[in-house]
Nucleic acid binder design. Structure first.
Length: 223
DNA sequence: ATCCCGAGGG
DNA sequence: CCCTCTGGAT
């Protein structure tokens, strides 16, 4: 019979300590995507799939100057949008989605960005992760968007192990204390981006290493 | 499971 | 060169 392979997972107390530490270090973590309203946030997040935020910001600086609203975006047209965002990976599909999504906001939501998951995920190019970001960042809902960083950090640390992003997300909703839920996404993404990096995690300067289950290849100095 | 796909870093 | 970056649709 298949033995249920035990996955090492941090207990609640350790999880709570981790977020206390994050809060202590950075009480108000901020994302690094540029936007000026709900619409531009939504578009920026759609464009950010498999792309760096720095690269997205470079393109959206051009794009949002011409089209900071759904109507302006539709007026721009797919070809113009494509040209403007050509420096971002997956740009063809993203340009089509941004155009169609803008038209749909006009047709179905009075040009506004909807504040619920169902409506958001019905938009082209918007899946669970993107919807969670908009709900969390703009509408201040306690969602946790699991991207490549959260997925890696959740598994590597043992904070929230899971085979899929959804599993990690559900694990995190149980591990993160409610009072820290609004900021959990930003704390974890920044931690993953600058310290718990994919290639060379910098464990020697990690603020949560005393709780982490990951064993770095290169041992800590003196340890 | 596979495709989409440019920029930046090592 | 190879890997990674705030994924989604088929």
């Amino acid at each position: 019979m298949p033995s249920p392979k035990k996955v090492k997972k941090l207990n609640r107390a350790a999880a709570e300590a981790i977020f206390e530490r994050f809060h202590e270090i950075e009480p108000e973590p901020k994302g690094e995507l540029d936007y000026v309203n709900a619409f531009t946030l939504l578009v920026a997040v759609v464009l950010s799939a498999q792309a760096t935020d720095a690269g997205v910001n470079k393109a959206t600086k051009r794009l949002f100057e011409l089209a900071p609203s759904p109507a302006a975006m539709v007026a721009l047209g797919v070809d113009q949008i494509t040209e403007l965002i050509k420096t971002i990976g997956l740009y063809r599909g993203k340009a089509k989605n941004v155009f169609a999504l803008s038209q749909m906001l006009i047709d179905l939501h009075g040009g506004e960005v909807p504040d619920n998951r169902e409506a958001l995920e019905a938009l082209p190019g918007v899946g669970r992760k993107t919807a969670n970001v908009v709900l969390n960042i703009y509408f201040k809902q306690p969602t946790i968007a699991v991207d490549t960083h959260l997925f890696r950090v959740g598994n590597r640390t043992g904070l929230a192990p899971g085979k899929t992003p959804l599993e990690v997300e559900l694990a995190l909703t149980k591990q993160v204390p409610e009072r820290f839920m609004l900021h959990a996404h930003h704390w974890l993404i920044l931690h993953g981006r600058y310290i718990c990096k994919a290639r060379k995690p910098e464990c020697w300067r990690c603020p949560i290493r005393e709780w982490c289950l990951f064993e770095p290849k290169t041992p800590l100095p003196g340890g």
